[in-house]
Design a protein around this nucleic acid. Structure first.
Lengths: 232, 232
DNA sequence: CTCGTATATTACCCATGGGTAAGAAATAGT
DNA sequence: ACTATTTCTTACCCATGGGTAATATACGAG
């Protein structure tokens, strides 16, 4: 929202003039919050470190107290988003339920993450802007997410909640829909995140579910007619 | 594939040594072919005009005989991809069929485009790297695609081939899956483009179709067990 | 052969922006 | 209050890479 210097100062631990003191971690996080916003707004290459610093009422070199360089900031933004997804997976793995249930849980949670800034960084940032080292970490993490989707589908087929299908393609199709949320969703929009998540969980598993759940025919046009929100 | 100067020379109208003469358009296209490949390989910002020129056995300033600048090359790559999608839409619009039929046609064709280099540029390139003028064109074109998806779904609901649903979200879900193909598909992979397209057309409309088509139960495990190809 | 045009090359310009050095200002400890 | 440490600023470096100017080479026409 209004990214004017004035409003940025509110959430910035650095007070405009002086009297700037606070915990180191809080500042680090503030840098990341600002950076991820700018990266999403203007793109990574369209954002300079001066842009980031300026919005925080500091100067560029000050950033180097907290990060080794621009690419590390990018990586850390991504890492926060990844952490949230990892938490989802861990939570679902530890819980019970059929394959279909777990798949739906993952879809809901993953969709919600995709509507947040850090979540978007998982799909909007370019891996090639990272160091080789961090790039490897990202690749591994992406594989982990893919494995989770496939595992739940596999589980579902095994326990009968999901009917046989091409696991690989199904996982890609579902993940693709979800990842794309990170490209079009904006909080300003008419659609609340939770609603999107729930809708996607149904829609994306409709074709997979072994038993049709198409219950009462009274709810289908759940929200056929909706406010004509911004297309993009 | 082997991007060595030697192999590049094969498809390059500029012969390594001399005797370089050919139609102007052929050269323009050669530049675009090379550029789109490099942009996809290394990213737009990771690719220099020298990279492009070098692979064509020429020098950077020679490119300016055909394009006003780097961003115009980017735009032209995108435009070729868009043209192909526009053709699909025009063809489907001119043809007949139910809403569901048209939707499936679009999915198949769009998926196939997404497996090509120019198709990928529709979703991998960053609109913010374009001039304001071209950016507007792109935005308009994106809206057009979105409208096509929504129109076919709307048609389908009207003619009874698709059951009532949230049109906006359904279009997003389908387009998202398809767009994501442009991020993971690589010709080297085990999956042929046509097969992906067909599979997606079924999978993505399974939940929408009014009448279940789940025909013979003999074909479900169509390709459950598949070669463990590269995950990414 | 010569001129005009198209095309390519060499050599250069220069704005941009990530990153660093040196030192000032604030903070904490004793 | 004095010192050590952390944090931040001013002033700078400089590699990169898009873009341009001047020039050379090839080619078609007369």
């Amino acid at each position: 929202m209004d990214g004017s210097p004035a409003s940025a100062a509110h959430q910035s631990p650095w007070m405009p003039f002086e009297s700037r003191r606070r915990a180191r971690d809080a500042k680090r996080e503030a840098v990341l919050r600002t950076a991820v916003q700018l990266f999403l707004e203007q793109g990574y290459h369209g954002t300079t470190l001066n842009d980031v610093a300026e919005r925080l009422n500091i100067t560029k070199p000050a950033l180097y107290n907290y990060f080794r360089g621009k690419d590390e900031i990018l990586y850390e933004c991504w890492a926060i988003g990844q952490e949230r997804v990892d938490d989802c997976i861990a939570e679902i793995d530890s819980g019970g339920g059929t394959g279909l249930t777990k798949l739906r849980k993952l879809i809901v949670r993953y969709a919600e993450v995709m509507t947040t800034d850090y979540g978007k960084s998982l799909v909007r940032f370019d891996v090639r802007d990272l160091t080789e080292h961090n790039r490897k970490i990202v690749r591994t993490a992406k594989k982990k997410i893919d494995r989770a989707f496939r595992a739940y589908i596999t589980d579902g087929i095994a326990d009968g909640s999901i009917r046989p299908c091409d696991i690989k393609l199904s996982a890609f199709a579902i993940a693709g829909s979800l990842n794309w949320i990170g490209h079009w969703y904006q909080p300003r929009g008419a659609l609340p995140a939770e609603e999107i998540a729930k809708e996607f969980a149904i829609r994306l598993t409709e074709g997979l579910a072994a038993k049709q759940l198409r219950k009462k025919a009274g709810k289908p046009p759940a929200s056929v007619k909706r406010v004509r929100g911004g297309t993009r």
